[in-house]
Nucleic acid binder design. Structure first.
Length: 322
DNA sequence: GTTTAATGGGTAT
DNA sequence: TACCCCTTAAACT
């Protein structure tokens, strides 16, 4: 279920699980056997995400590149309470393209559109094609002003531009619908008519919102939920130990929630292991997937339309073009 | 048992 | 704009 927040959370979890270890790398399903052999038995140096692209680096400049696409899933589970306990690894269920395994952690990848081993040069080429990532705001090159020149000379709609990863990296269909609604932006406004200030407001909002998505493992955009999520994070952010550890504070909730690693209620013959992310917040949105229902702000019916193969949702009244 | 939808994106037309 | 790839599970028959 991948927008940028999913990949950044995953990068962090994989980094915590495998950096500094030498995992076994296999392809139970058999479609990544050659690639897995290139990584098997090599020490893992770490994992990072840019937009929706995930990279796991191994010694010898071998980099695992994963893109989950629409339906890809990368399940990371701590199946043993500690290293060296000789707990049997869980069986690979379903179409597991690649498995990373230590005596403590297992990570199963399914359904991804891109799984390949790349060189640092190839990684750089991929990154060069990406626009700024709100989850990397403040880092060199991650500047929303970069996108303004593109906006100024295109008739493509703002809804389309938000999904263009070379304009903005990491936003997908849910974040685009919701952030446009939050700012009352008419989705079909051509890029050249979007004010620079509006673009920067959208960016700033995503910079605030997306870390909540990372921290809670779900997209949070309803104003009251954003407030609640920020309140839940506040004490964690203030935690001295977390600060000292150098971890991005927004990730810390995942320690306390024990998100990955808690076994949930299995449903019999499921093709995926059943562990659940524990989140205090129900999955609710203002407009996404709410066609015909009332806009939570003005009560008008939410509209939807397929745009270039993706369903766009918006409120016809408060996002009316002016 | 079969069809469909899902928070993506590439390539052909 | 259409079609293709990846996989699962819920919603249909």
């Amino acid at each position: 279920m991948p927008e940028g927040h999913t990949l950044h959370r995953l990068a962090h979890t994989l980094d915590r699980a495998f950096a500094g270890t030498t995992p076994r790398v296999t392809s139970p399903q058999g479609r990544f056997v050659a690639g897995a052999a290139l990584l098997d038995g090599r020490a893992c140096e770490g994992a990072q995400a840019w937009g929706k692209h995930l990279f796991v680096t191994f010694v010898g400049e071998r980099i695992l590149n994963v893109h989950l696409g629409l339906i890809g899933v990368f399940d990371v589970l701590r199946y043993a309470a500690g290293p060296g306990l000789a707990v049997p690894a869980p069986p690979a269920v379903g179409a597991v393209r690649m498995r990373l395994l230590t005596d403590e952690w297992v990570a199963d990848l399914r359904g991804a559109t891109v799984v390949e081993v790349v060189t640092p040069e190839q990684q750089a080429a991929t990154l060069a094609r990406l626009g700024p990532d709100p989850l990397r705001a403040g880092e060199p090159g991650q500047d929303p002003a970069r996108s303004l020149a593109k906006l100024a000379r295109t008739d493509r709609s703002i809804a389309e531009l938000l999904m263009d990863q070379s304009v903005l990296a990491g936003v997908g269909n849910v974040y685009r619908c919701e952030v446009l609604h939050r700012h009352r932006v008419a989705p079909f406004t051509p890029g050249r008519l979007v004010k620079a200030s509006t673009w920067l407001e959208l960016w700033d909002d995503l910079v605030d919102l997306m870390p909540l998505g990372v921290a809670f493992g779900q997209i949070i955009t309803l104003p009251e939920q954003v407030e609640e999520a920020q309140a839940l994070l506040a004490p964690v952010r203030a935690d001295g130990e977390a600060q000292a550890s150098g971890e991005p504070a927004a990730y810390v909730v995942d320690w306390q929630g024990g998100a990955e690693g808690e076994r949930g209620r299995g449903r019999g013959r499921s093709k995926r292991p059943a562990y659940e992310v524990v989140s205090p917040l129900p999955r609710e949105y203002a407009v996404y997937k709410r066609t015909g229902e009332p806009c939570p702000r003005c009560g008008a019916r939410v509209r939807s339309q397929v745009v270039a193969g993706r369903t766009l949702y918006w409120c016809g009244r408060c996002q009316r073009r002016r």
